[in-house]
Computed example of a mutant assay.
Amino acid sequence: MVFTCKICTDNIAVTQKRIKCSHCLLYYHTECVKIGKDSAGIRAQWKCQNCKIKNSKLATSEVDKKKKAHKSQTPTESESDKYSTSSSTNSTPNLNQDLITKDKNENLEGTLFNSPDILEQFESIFDNKVKPMVESIFNELKVSLIAEIRKEMAKEIKGLEEENAQLRIEYENLDEKCKKLEAKITQTDTEVSELQKQINNQQQWARMSNLEIVGLPELPKESPINLVIEIAKHAGVTLKHEQIEFASRVQPMQSKPGRPKTLVAKLKNRELKDAILSGLRKVRGISTTDIGIGGDHRRFYVNEHLTPKNKQLFNKAKSIASDKSYKFIWIRNCSIFLRRNEESPALTISSENDLNKIK
């Protein structure tokens, strides 16, 4: 504990000599109050200058009070003479007795506060009495607070459990709805796929008598019907105008610069289409010079008119067949066929699932 000298107002270090007033209990440097090494005998009764002055004034005041009280009790002149001797004799001893008693009380008070250090006594009392009481109160408060917290937590947990149960019920309901929707979507996808397949088959059936001519150069003022007749003539088939329902150029789905538009011709019946394709296979294809078109010699191709979906399927089958070293791939009656070699059986490709047959 740090003490402060009341004269120089500096802190009193542990290694410095100090003295405490037996009356006001304040500390002083021994040097500041000019007490030497031989002060051991007076430490218990030592008083600071302020307390000495206060005690001196207090003693004077007590004496004055005694005198006034004595005067108020003094008898009349006739009685004064009678008791003058006894009054003068008894007043002085009573005053001296009071002063002696006061000095003894002050000495006893100084001895009480200086015997052990009063602050250390307070600390000891606090450690032995007050501190256990404080700890007991603190423990009781802690137990009470913990009980309240547990109670509140129990309420919160119960509320969360109820909310969780409600959420679980809602989740199960949503999960059941999702499963029903998934089943419905699967069913719808199946139905849509079946409808698409039917539409594709209907579109393909409508094109069974069609020819698709790819790569044939476009000529100014050309007659598509006459071009189809010349192509049939090269294939060894005599074709008349009335046997052609229509023939025209069509815009491809993905046009490329410099590539001519595809020529599509619809014949009266499928036998004419098959005859033309069979004749072209026998003569090993056709070119512009075969049908009397001047200029550079250019090959073009006459195929069956497939739907866009069947064209994509044909391109995929052709790519896979090339990777698997298949020698033959062709189209007949708008169906795709593959054969690894002359001796192997033909494979029919009519859907995406049939591509797995190519091994």
Rank of each mutant, 00 (worst) to 15 (best):
E109H: 07
S84I: 08
G110I: 09
S84D: 11
K102R: 09
L112H: 05
K104M: 02
N107T: 15
S87L: 14
T92K: 13
S87Q: 09
L99A: 05
L95Y: 02
S84C: 08
N90D: 07
L99C: 01
D98M: 05
I100G: 01
N94K: 06
E109R: 10
N94T: 01
F113E: 04
E109V: 08
N114R: 12
N114P: 03
T92P: 02
Q97C: 05
N107E: 09
N114I: 08
S91W: 07
F113K: 04
P93A: 00
T111C: 06
D103H: 05
E109W: 10
T111G: 01
Q97K: 12
N114K: 15
T85Y: 10
S84W: 04
S87Y: 13
L99G: 04
T92E: 14
N94G: 02
S91K: 14
D98N: 13
N105A: 05
E109S: 07
N96P: 00
N96F: 07
Q97V: 01
L99K: 08
N90G: 07
D103G: 04
K102H: 03
G110W: 02
N94W: 01
T92I: 11
G110E: 04
S86Y: 05
G110C: 09
D98I: 06
N96A: 07
S91E: 12
S87G: 02
S84V: 06
N90M: 12
N94H: 07
L99E: 03
K104P: 00
K104G: 00
N105R: 14
D98W: 09
L108G: 07
N114L: 06
L112V: 05
T89A: 11
E106T: 03
S91H: 06
L99R: 03
T89V: 10
K102V: 00
T101R: 06
N105S: 11
T101S: 11
T92N: 08
N94Q: 13
K102T: 01
P93K: 01
F113V: 10
S86F: 05
D98K: 15
L108E: 15
G110L: 09
N114M: 10
N94C: 00
K102E: 01
T101K: 13
S88H: 08
S88Y: 05
L108H: 09
L112R: 10
E106P: 00
N114W: 04
D103F: 03
S91P: 00
L95M: 12
T85W: 11
S87H: 08
K102A: 04
N90W: 02
N105H: 07
F113L: 12
N90A: 03
T85N: 13
S91A: 10
